[in-house]
């Protein structure tokens, strides 16, 4: 409808195509990487590498596809806040779960085998 189309004018940030494609290529690269790493046995490091790669991918999606990098920082604050509370939730739950293990009798010793 409008004849003049100008990237820098108007509402919101317009992502250039090269950026979208670049982010997509990175996301695919990290997907291949995270699958490839599972074929190498690094012991407990595997899960942390997988999670780190997921965080990087998530950050790419959030920053570029979801425009957070160009948005009002308040939106990022909400997202980061959600993750922080999630970390508190899961962190404290995990700290707690180990605390009672020695008080729990293995089910097989206490419970008679019922039919």
């Amino acid at each position: 409808m409008n004849a003049h189309t100008n990237d820098d004018h108007g509402i919101g940030h317009v992502s250039p195509i090269w950026m979208l494609l670049g982010v997509f290529a990175l996301l695919i690269f990290f997907t291949v990487l995270t699958v490839a790493v599972t074929y190498v046995d690094l012991g407990p490091a595997n899960i942390w590498i997988a999670l780190a790669v997921a965080v990087v991918k998530g950050a790419l999606v959030g920053l570029y596809f979801m425009h957070l990098r160009y948005d009002s920082p308040f939106n990022s604050l909400i997202l980061v806040g959600a993750f922080l509370f999630l970390a508190v939730f899961i962190g404290i739950a995990l700290m707690d779960t180990g605390e009672y293990q020695q008080n729990i009798s293995p089910p097989d010793t206490v419970r008679p085998v019922a039919g």
Partner: peptide, 23 residues
């Protein structure tokens, strides 16, 4: 709507290694 779709993607990005790539 796009934000919603990206969030769905974001959650899958974490689900995938946690469920399919257990080592």
């Amino acid at each position: 709507g796009g934000l919603y779709w990206h969030l769905v993607d974001l959650i899958w990005i974490f689900l995938f290694p946690l469920l399919y790539l257990i080592h």
